[in-house]
Design a protein around this nucleic acid. Structure first.
Length: 438
RNA sequence: CGGAGUGUGGCUCAGUCUGGUAGAGCACCGCGUUCGGGACGCGGGGGUCGCAGGUUCAAAUCCUGCCACUCCGACCA
């Protein structure tokens, strides 16, 4: 993409409304524009990042055996009356009447819809397990939206729903999501800690929140250091095998956020293993049994010929929140530092003397080579001063900066800067391209 | 929903106390000089001062009401 033809409205100063660093940087980098409290338009750069994250989530869901669908944003109130939640949900639900005075709502989540889909088609235990997910906009009319897209009213969520014949099966489904989530966050360059969450009325131990560590997080996290440092399981696990031991390895070590914190257990750990940090909740997985399947009569016939409500779980990732969370976890005084998997562009070519034939030629060559290599480069071909280009490149946080100036070109070299480390090397173009393309 | 604050050009803000012809920096347009960390000079365009009422010869400024946004708290699959 040539910057001269792109739409990337960067700001030198952050709008006063933005209080936290991710919000400030998203506005300065021209990623989003606020349209109302907690409601944002996604500009080209922000949309690219959103889609990158979405794709990582999608790939890890698919790998773990979940199947993508797309449910509507607008839902029928009748379904929520069936589950009993229409009245319970309160003012956070945005309720709508259509022209026929039918009660509709903008979905804050999709248990009812997915349960309705499931019950319409699946009747036998032989068709289980199933895990259906979608990545769709949700709306929750928060009393106080804040912190940009971190806590918006409209937000993009990946929500998956598992269906199993019995509790043992549900636990397997849960374990798959548990490990898949760790892989998602690891791919996005984040340190994620699964903490025990309030399981709600169902009880049991099958509810975890995933907190990523960032100094500006909303919650306090207490965890065993070994758990934080353990790393993700990686893609090469046997998703159809017994994931119990792998999950147990990660849930046996202490980890809790403030509301579930057990100070006594924490203090019992060796001091050098105790870790407290700030965290941002970016995922929540949940087993809730027949909470929806029973009232909504999502029944499957078992081997004994009897109908029983299907066992369900739900698994949410805040995709749009992750955009902000990554920035909170990865930035410096000059701007955003994108991990490769979330970066809007793989590299940026900085033409320090647009209009100079020799410099233009090297830039074009670099741009073409990076494009051909699938790096999806941004080319800053604007007629602007070097300082402005450096500042913009740092601000938007693209992993590699390929800096092409007249002096270097005369000597047959370019400069390659790594945004994350700040490391620079002055090398021939070929070497720089090789470094970027791996 | 309780408490606090803020609304002045695209952005950051001054001006409001003490009423008297709407300002600065950045951004934008033109010309020129520049060109390795957000350049400089000259010239230029852009604002019903959140909205509605009221007071006054005169309102960004004083009064009343409303709206929006932000922060703290409560709330939060």
């Amino acid at each position: 993409m040539r910057l001269s033809r792109y739409f990337m409205p960067t700001l030198r100063e952050a709008p006063a409304d933005a209080q936290i660093v991710s919000h400030q940087l998203m506005l300065r980098a021209g990623m989003v524009r606020q349209e109302a409290a907690g409601i944002y338009a996604w500009l080209p750069l922000g949309l690219r990042v959103l889609k990158k994250i979405e794709q990582v989530v999608r790939e890890e869901m698919d790998r773990a055996g979940a199947i993508e669908i797309l449910m509507p944003t607008i839902q029928l109130a009748d379904l929520w009356k069936e589950s009993g939640r229409y009245d319970d949900y309160g003012d956070e639900m945005l309720r709508i009447l259509d022209r026929g005075q039918r009660e509709l709502l903008f979905g804050p989540t999709a248990e009812e819809v997915v349960t309705d889909i499931f019950r319409s088609y699946v009747k036998s235990y032989k068709d289980l397990p199933k895990n259906l997910y979608n990545i769709q906009w949700k709306f929750r009319d928060e009393r106080r939206p804040r912190f940009g897209v971190m806590r918006g009213r409209e937000f993009l969520m990946k929500d998956a729903y598992s269906f199993d014949a019995d509790e043992a099966g549900a636990r397997k489904s849960y374990n798959r999501m548990f490990l898949a989530y760790l892989n998602v966050y690891a791919r996005l360059g984040l340190k994620a800690v699964p903490v025990k969450a309030d399981p709600g009325p169902i009880g049991g131990d099958l509810s975890h929140e995933f907190m990523i560590l960032a100094d500006t997080g909303e919650s306090q996290v207490f965890a065993h250091r070994d758990l934080v440092e353990m790393g993700a399981p990686g893609p090469d696990i046997d998703w159809d095998g017994d994931l119990g031991p792998e999950v147990a390895r990660r849930t046996s070590l202490y980890a809790a956020s403030d509301e579930m914190h057990d100070a006594a257990r924490f203090e019992a750990m060796p001091e050098d293993k105790r870790m407290t940090a700030r965290g941002i909740e970016v995922g929540h997985i949940f087993y809730f049994g027949t909470k929806y399947s029973a009232p909504m009569k999502a029944l499957v016939t078992g081997p004994d010929g009897k109908d029983t409500p299907v066992q369900m779980g739900s698994y949410g990732v805040g995709v749009s929140r992750l955009v902000a969370a990554i920035i909170e976890a990865s930035h410096d005084a000059n701007g955003i530092i994108w991990p490769a998997a979330a970066a809007p562009f793989g590299a940026v070519v900085l033409n320090l003397r647009a209009g100079d034939a020799a410099v233009d030629a090297v830039c074009e060559q670099a741009y073409a080579a990076l494009t051909a290599a699938g790096i999806d480069p941004l080319y800053d071909d604007r007629d602007d001063r070097p300082g402005a280009k450096f500042a913009a490149a740092d601000l938007v946080g693209i992993p590699w900066q390929l800096i092409v100036g007249p002096k270097g070109v005369a000597e047959g070299v370019v400069e390659l800067k790594n945004r994350a480390t700040g490391e620079r090397q002055t090398v021939p173009l070929d070497a720089a391209l090789k470094a970027i393309t791996g």
